[in-house]
């Protein structure tokens, strides 16, 4: 059992950057470009890991250095609970909450580390990151509520897969959006926004710290994909593996096409949108409450 979980984690570690490479390729094709090879993200990471990090002199050093590690571990821990390639995982009551908590923790620590760098851009970026997190949290809470209502549980063991119902479709659709938002893609890449605040929180990070942070971003996206797919896929191993891989590819293509053909929102626009979305989520939650 535990051995299989390790396989899952290894799978994620290896394939998360590959999927990013794949998305880059898809985006390139949508922009009439050749695009880099799908291994490019891996090469980038390897290169970054080899570089010595530079620590800005007016940062709060301990926090600044610790943040990438905590972020990375938080995301990795979530993989113990969310199954990827194989359906096995460590499950207990309330693990759904724990996963959400871990993901938020990763984002918060990441922002905190960036904030401690002392760079105004990083501080702005962290500010934006947190505001965006807060605004999406409400929707997320509703989504959790909906899903929990459907499965009458907060444990993945029971929740996976969801039964076919109106409320589950609505819940998953909302989850689809929330995943998009929290994986910081255009139009919601406001915290990073290269032309505005120069990669915001990442601006001062370098070398292996940067690599760790980027790695955690890829892992986080991959985790959210897996989470989503788990809600759909049946538990029998044979169909599941194939379906899982196929689902990942489909999700990647859909997400990256959306990303390639959107402009960036301003923070206030994004927050307004999230508010509207929470209203929708509330309705969906009520539907779930009715048991439809």
């Amino acid at each position: 059992m535990n051995f299989l979980v390790v396989i899952n984690i290894l799978f994620a570690l290896i394939f998360a950057p590959l999927f990013d490479g794949f998305e880059r390729k898809v985006k390139a094709r949508l922009q009439n470009r050749q695009g880099p090879s799908i291994f490019q993200t891996w090469w980038d990471l390897i290169k970054l890991f080899k570089r010595p990090p530079v620590i800005p002199s007016d940062s709060i050093k301990r926090l600044y250095i610790l943040a990438p590690y905590i972020t990375f571990t938080a995301v990795l821990t979530a993989y113990l609970i969310v199954p990827t390639l194989l359906p096995q995982s460590l499950n207990f009551a309330g693990d759904f909450i724990l996963v959400i908590y871990l993901i938020s923790l990763a984002t918060l620590i990441f922002s905190l580390g960036a904030f401690s760098s002392g760079n105004p851009y990083a501080q702005l970026g962290s500010n934006r990151e947190v505001s965006l997190l807060m605004s999406e949290e409400l929707v997320l809470a509703f989504v959790v509520g909906i899903l929990a209502l459907i499965g009458r549980s907060l444990s993945f063991e029971i929740l996976f897969p969801l039964p076919l119902k109106v409320s589950s479709i609505l819940g998953l659709a909302l989850l689809f959006v929330v995943i998009y938002v929290s994986s910081a893609r255009i139009p919601f890449d406001i915290p990073e926004a290269e032309p505005e605040i120069i990669e915001g929180p990442l601006i001062e990070y370098s070398g292996k710290h940067l690599a760790l942070l980027e790695y955690s971003i890829y892992l986080k996206r991959f985790l959210l994909y897996s989470l989503f797919l788990n809600f759909i896929l049946p538990k029998e191993t044979t169909i599941r593996t194939g379906g899982f891989l196929l689902g990942l590819i489909v999700l990647s293509i859909v997400y990256s096409s959306l990303e390639a053909y959107y402009g960036r929102f301003r923070l206030d626009q994004a927050i307004k949108l999230m508010k509207k979305l929470s209203a929708v989520a509330l309705v969906a939650w009520l539907i779930a409450l009715m048991g439809w």
Binding site: Q31, I186, P187, P195, E196, Y261, R264
Partner: peptide
Amino acid sequence: HLLGFDSGFMH
């Protein structure tokens, strides 16, 4: 590009 729409830039 500045508005985050890189595909428009490419086009």
